[in-house]
Design a protein around this nucleic acid. Structure first.
Length: 906
DNA sequence: ACTACAACTTAGAACCGCGGTA
DNA sequence: TACCGCGGTTCTAAGTTGTAGT
């Protein structure tokens, strides 16, 4: 542990996760203040006061069971049998590298009764609860007062620029559209070049231009689609028109040799520009794209494929058949077993059937009587067919698809070609909400152009949809980066089409994110000092905020906004409730709750004494299950405070900062002289530590258990071989037992049960091989015109084999193994040594696999770890970058590759 | 202040294709 | 020669943050 002690003086604070234990100790020593005393006494009990509608239960509750803690409340609490059980997540049993970051011991032991799944959730509003005066002086008033800071100041966005942008709701209004004129004029130059001076001026003017000009957003009715939309990306803005997908660029300075190089130079290297580009209001001046690609219309199933109801095949109109098919395709998944999912699906299915009933006069009343198997089997057959297609057929299909998609792949931004991300309109289907989402199973409607609003350059041609219909609206807002947007029917959430992760827009903001996290390094000492102080604040709101911040910093919790009743009940720091945190004296806190995506966060953590006391206080009477732990705190308040400590600082920055910092620290364990594989292993270990810190999980794949067991047996098989070698050695040279007593020890892990199994297996294999050989020989003999060997011959051979194995078994039992011919002490010893090595590496691999089975490395690599750390590390240790970053990742982080050398530090 | 909305980042599951292999 | 495990990619759900409207 503590790789961290090293380095600078900044250490103590800067190092992430200064071990909580030590902190606790130091803290404990000083400052017992009046209120502390009080606290331990009565006073943990704030005055009882209003309680409001606290107890209110959430409906579905599903929790059924808070019953046993062993249960992964997270995923599919489904009652169902094996399948669900197998998927269960396992809490890491130890953290070994204790040092990893905000060190927290993963808990080993089961825990108290709290259960993240327990439902009672009070109403959304923060309830206010009063705390006793003895404890906290002022502050009867909850969230209101204090915060002397930016009182009168206008709302700014950190740059001091007013950030206003009254947005017009998307109406079908016709437009009025005045003039972003000045912009377009002065703007021939790509955004990049702008002098900084230009920025303020612009945004100022646009902000001022207010109502009349209604900024740069205009929304027009979609009736367009008439004019020149044949020409997609091309035209508009003369010059730029030419870079069509396929054509090569003529211009540019010198002629390049290789094509690839050409493309390369073609890419916009925004990071080489002098000024920051991303932080302006205006994101583009010209913007062309082809909007979204709608999925093909529904194709009815063959006539002979029908779902059955109560045994009767139903002839469904395409509209209802499609919906039946959505479910039919899923009947073997966990979703289809889920009560809520079924309920919601069936409600919507019935609705559709109402409008599009089956030909037969059958009333569909219960889902139980629906038999989708014929549909399911049909889909399976189709899949098979697809798989069985020849290469050429597959290729033909792929080519057709590529051609269809080609126009959507890229957008033109200020004359540059940029890759579009999710250009496909989401197809209809059943909503797959995570965890106990109350809406899961709900039918997601098919999108039409009428649902979709486009954001596109003023002079750009309006793209034509690939299915009939007119866009819901067109706007030209150059302060945002989305291409298209719609509202999804299930939850009413907005969906957007953006450029891809490799685009300059995304790249710039990504880089800015990491730069902000690095900026935090400079402030974190002070921030930690402050919140440590505030843990003792007399102002309840401050004390809660400090405590929350402590968790966000040390445990990398998310901010935790309030959520609605019609979403899964998950929480983050600020929304933690009474039941999510349990105290375990003297100074441990046990967290057990469902976080984003309903992933369980279950950790036992040692905390500062003051934090312990605070939690006790926050949980004191009259608070109860369902109440907010931090009843005086919201994410807004927290972020406001953070922003006052460092411009632009918000809760999520801590996650980025802690993740990257931890990674950097852990990378110091890289073996300087190791092989590439060893170095990569060290890299992955560091990555894993970060993933654990951030609680990034994945479901254990269903085959895992089996394949793990198999791998264990393989190791045992190696040990078995080793044993045989040893015994040979002893027969050859009995004295060696004395000289090398360690060799006399039996292999671990091998029991009678295994021997039986293994030997039988080996024998079966040998027998099989003999039979095959027999057949093969006969074929050969026949070809050569000779007479075949008879069955007796084979039987004879089989008998021999069986006898051999009997002998083997006897040898094993008697522990006397006849040395094979040519065996010598030296050779055997060498073989044993080799075997030891193989066993050891296999063991290590297996353990690694076990540790990673429920940890997802990708998310932290993609979102939290500054890519420049990877680039620098690769350079420093001479490991090819492509071993660390996949193609897409490299496309996402070109700026890191360009920027970081071997010495770069976070 | 509080809610609703808008825009963007973060997230695990599902899907897909590839190379090893029984 | 199909199977299978796995990493990479795609998909879209679920967060955070900031602003606007009331």
């Amino acid at each position: 542990m503590s790789t961290s002690i090293s380095t600078s003086g900044a250490d103590e604070m800067a190092v992430v996760a200064p071990n909580l234990e030590s902190t606790a100790i130091t803290q404990a020593s000083h400052a017992p203040q009046v209120e502390d005393e009080n606290m331990s006494s009565d006073d943990d009990v704030p005055l009882k006061k209003k309680t409001n509608g606290a107890g209110q239960k959430r409906a579905g509750g599903g929790g059924s069971s808070s019953s046993d803690d062993e249960k992964p409340l997270s995923k599919k609490p489904r009652t169902s049998t094996g399948a669900a059980a197998k998927k269960r997540r396992i809490i890491a049993s130890d953290s070994e590298e204790s040092d990893a970051g905000p060190s927290v011991k993963k808990e080993l032991a089961p825990t108290p009764k709290t259960n993240g799944a327990s439902k009672p959730r009070s109403s959304n509003a923060k309830k206010e609860i009063s705390y006793s005066e003895s404890d906290l002086s002022e502050d009867e008033r909850p969230l209101a007062k204090k915060k002397a800071t930016p009182k009168g100041a206008p709302v700014t966005n950190g740059n001091g620029k007013p950030k206003s942008k009254p947005k017009k709701p998307v109406t079908s209004e016709s437009e009025s559209e005045p003039s972003p004129s000045e912009e377009s004029s002065e703007d021939e130059k790509p955004l990049a070049k702008k002098k900084p001076a230009a920025k303020p001026r612009k945004s100022a003017s646009s902000a001022v231009a207010t109502p009349a000009t209604k900024k740069k957003t205009t929304i027009v009715k979609a009736e367009v689609d008439s004019d020149d939309d044949e020409v997609p990306l091309a035209k508009g803005k003369g010059a730029k028109g030419k870079s069509k997908v396929e054509d090569k660029k003529p211009i540019v300075k010198k002629e390049k040799k290789v094509k690839e190089e050409e493309e390369d130079e073609d890419k916009f290297k925004w990071w080489e520009q002098q000024e920051a580009l991303g932080d302006g209001e205006v994101k583009w001046t010209t913007f062309e794209h082809n909007a979204v690609l709608f999925p093909p219309p529904y194709i009815p199933l063959p006539k002979n494929v029908k779902m059955k109801y109560d045994g009767v095949p139903l002839t469904l109109p395409p509209e209802s058949e499609e919906v039946a098919g959505f479910f039919g395709a899923m009947i073997e998944t966990d979703h289809a077993q889920d009560a809520k999912f079924r309920e919601n699906f069936f409600r919507d299915f019935k609705g559709v059937l109402e409008k599009y009933p089956p030909k037969e006069d059958v009333k569909v009343k219960t889902l139980e009587k629906c038999d989708f198997k014929p549909m399911f089997e049909h889909f399976e057959r189709e899949k098979e067919k697809k798989k069985a297609m020849t290469k050429d057929e597959k290729k033909a299909i792929k080519d057709a698809k590529d051609k269809m998609e080609a126009p959507y792949l890229f957008a033109m931004v200020d004359g540059r070609k940029e890759k579009v991300g999710n250009f496909r309109a989401e197809p209809p289907g059943l909503f797959r909400g995570r965890g106990e989402h109350p809406k899961k199973g709900t039918l997601k409607h098919r999108l039409r152009p009428e649902d979709i609003v486009l954001n596109i350059g003023k002079d750009a041609p309006i793209p034509k949809a690939n299915i009939p219909g007119n866009w819901k609206g067109i706007q030209h807002d150059n302060t945002v980066t989305w291409l298209a947007h719609w509202k999804e029917n299930v939850n009413g959430n907005a969906k957007y089409v953006f450029l891809s992760a490799g685009s300059s827009w995304k790249g710039q903001s990504d880089r800015a994110k990491f730069e902000k996290a690095r900026e935090l390094i400079k402030h974190v000492d002070k921030i930690r000092k402050d919140y440590t102080e505030d843990l003792k604040s007399k102002v309840m709101a401050d004390r809660q905020r400090a405590t929350a911040l402590y968790f966000i910093d040390r445990l990398a919790l998310r901010a935790g906004n309030e959520k609605g009743e019609d979403e899964a009940d998950t929480v983050g720091c600020c929304s933690l409730r009474y039941e999510h945190v349990t105290l375990s004296p003297p100074n441990k806190v046990i967290f057990d709750f469902l976080g984003k995506d309903s992933m369980r966060f279950h950790q036992e953590v040692e905390v500062d004494n003051q934090v312990f006391k605070n939690i006790k206080l926050f949980k004191a009477e009259p608070k109860k299950k369902g109440d907010d732990l931090f009843d005086r705190l919201t994410t807004t308040l927290l972020n406001k405070h953070l922003n006052s400590m460092m411009p632009g600082l918000t809760a999520k920055v801590f996650r980025t900062y802690n993740a990257s910092w931890t990674f950097q620290q852990q990378l110091k364990n890289t073996p300087k002289n190791g092989t590439v594989a060893e170095k990569i292993a060290a890299y992955n270990t560091a990555n894993r530590d970060v993933a654990i810190l951030c609680n990034h999980q994945k479901t254990v794949s269903k085959g895992f258990e089996a394949s793990f067991a198999k791998a264990e047996d393989k190791i045992r098989a190696l040990k078995y071989q080793r044993m045989k070698l040893r015994l040979q050695l002893f027969s050859l040279d009995p004295k060696i037992k004395k000289k090398r007593p360690e060799l006399a020890e039996d292999e671990s892990d091998l029991d009678e049960d295994f021997f039986e199994r293994h030997e039988t297996e080996l024998m079966e294999k040998a027998l099989d091989a003999a039979r095959k050989k027999h057949e093969k020989d006969n074929v050969k003999l026949e070809e050569e015109g000779q007479s075949k060997k008879g069955k007796a011959d084979l039987d004879e051979r089989l008998k021999e084999i069986k006898a051999e194995f009997k002998e083997l078994k006897k040898e094993r039992k008697s522990k006397k193994v006849e040395p094979r011919k040519g065996a010598t002490d030296e050779k055997l010893l060498e073989q044993i040594g080799k075997m030891d090595e193989r066993i050891a590496t296999a063991r290590v691999q297996l353990e690694d696999r076990d540790k990673l089975k429920d940890v997802a490395l990708g998310t932290s690599k993609i979102n939290y770890i500054d890519p420049r750390l990877t680039v620098a590390w690769a350079k420093k240790y001479d490991v090819p970058l492509e071993k660390l970053f996949s193609k897409t990742l490299r496309e996402k982080f070109p700026w890191a590759e360009a920027e970081a050398d071997a010495k770069w530090v976070f």
